[in-house]
Design a protein around this nucleic acid. Structure first.
Lengths: 276, 276
DNA sequence: TTGCTCCTCACGTCACGTGAGGTGGC
DNA sequence: TTGCTCCTCACGTCACGTGAGGTGGC
């Protein structure tokens, strides 16, 4: 029998760690002196300790390790837990690789512009969003009010509230002079029945989006588009997916429709991108 | 000016998160009602919020983000922080990939043996260890006592204590009948001068080691070696680096040397492995 | 006797989540 | 007036690390 300090040295963990595992019941001293409270361990406990550390290194929590080590676990259950962990690790790697790509984008931008404040392009990940969607072809972007009107009416009729900002998606691959294929999208949390016009769907995750926030009247938003497009090209990307407009501050209403000239409008333009 | 709930919805974060950022000074409400304590935000604060979230997504802590956003940061400092983060993410990816490989090893083992308890082979990562080392050629493994003796004397003479278990490394690539190239290694934390025989070095990290804990007299340890070797072959690995023996419970002393027959000895055998 | 090891609280970490209990605004 | 939003504590998370203050063992 050896004292806690020696067992700690042997297993290359801290004394505090051993006390912690004792408290959790992961590995108990073979004997605890009833007067001094001293914990005594055995060399034979080393393999258990080794296994605990190995499982921890695989990313299991101490709670999970407790369950993995408890008797009565079949090989199938064990395999299932490992496979779950495997999937989680795979996900983590994918996430970190996404991060790396986005970070590289920031770095390239800094190297080009020498200062971050000059042009407020930000690369970010956009999580998926559930909502009500309506898609149609309209002559020009301002005419998307023809879609928003019915969508809002539909939501109102079903007493469903929006849970976030309005989003427009521009589905045309090439620039159109007329006949724009536009999807209007209202985020919702509640259940909503579908109709021939209104569908309920999940906007997909965008791993990397180049974004600018435009503040000003909608009519002159082209400038922001132009510079964002230039930025994408100059930084070695290409657009991969429909650009989105997110209404940060909605424009005032004029005759029941969004004002094209309200200078207080704020819109975020998001271009999904991949490295060219 | 909008209330906290609306700004939260707009930025897709929780109200609690906004209060937290306020507390940390990351993003302050433009106005706080002095009687009710209500926080009021502005749409113009959205780009800052967006930037904070983007930086957080890259893995920066809120504390770091505070510093990144504070004025007076040159482009070089900014780039340096990003590059540091980049390196950390690269490391994380490498770590997770190592985990994945070790986890696969556990899975393969389970598929083969149907139960984990049958053979106690554990795949684990071994961190680097600093210590005093002495290497020499001896007729047979039991003769490594000729190395341990002088190493212990040297440590004693310099009043340096071991900080962990004794380790032997077997450097021969092929099986030897005689003349074994063995390194004996004593972990230490303190400074120790080197000598022609004794060097101070760091045992390298082993990303994946197949390990068994053998309990019994040293003479019959061959069995454990044999089955570990078989395990390595059967599970699609090959040995990549000198096998190590870690003394978990030292054998008794016989005439000043390690007893070869003490049944209470416990040794962990570690084979560094890579996928074949 | 002295230094070393061990003990039990108790608090800190990080970015919030989750109540409890109370109040302002429409 | 009622329900909704907001407020401030205060505690929990996870795996320990870090003292504080005290005692046993050689």
């Amino acid at each position: 029998m050896i004292r806690i300090g020696d067992f700690a040295k042997l297993s290359r963990v801290s004394v505090k760690t051993l006390r912690h595992y004792d408290e959790l019941g992961l590995i108990k001293p073979v004997r605890v002196d009833e007067f001094t409270g001293y914990r005594y361990y055995d060399y034979e406990q080393y393999p258990l300790m080794s296994r605990i550390r190995a499982l921890q290194d695989l990313g299991f929590s101490l709670d999970e390790i407790g369950r993995l080590l408890s008797a009565g676990l079949t090989s199938e259950q064990m395999q299932a837990m490992l496979r779950l962990r495997r999937a989680e690790i795979g996900q983590r790697i994918a996430d970190e690789e996404g991060r790396l790509a986005r970070l590289d984008a920031w770095l390239r931008q800094l190297e080009r512009t020498e200062t971050m404040a000059e042009y407020d392009v930000v690369i970010k990940r956009i999580p998926s969003i559930r909502g009500a969607s309506m898609r149609g072809v309209v002559p020009q972007p301002p005419d998307q009010n023809r879609l928003w009107g019915p969508l809002f009416s539909y939501l109102g009729a079903h007493r469903v509230e929006m849970s976030g900002q309005c989003i427009s998606l521009y589905h045309d691959e090439e620039y159109q002079d007329k006949d724009w294929d536009i999807e209007v999208f209202a985020p919702i949390n509640d259940e909503l029945p579908e109709s021939p016009e209104v569908s309920v769907r999940e906007l997909p995750v965008v791993e990397a989006a180049a974004c600018v926030v435009y503040a000003g009247p909608l009519i002159t938003m082209d400038e922001a588009y132009a510079s964002l497009s230039r930025w994408v090209g100059e930084n070695g990307y290409r657009v991969a997916g429909p650009p989105r407009e997110v209404v940060v501050r909605p424009p005032a209403l004029e005759n029941g429709a969004a004002s094209q000239t309200d200078p207080a409008s704020i819109i975020e333009i998001q271009f999904p991108v991949v490295k060219a």
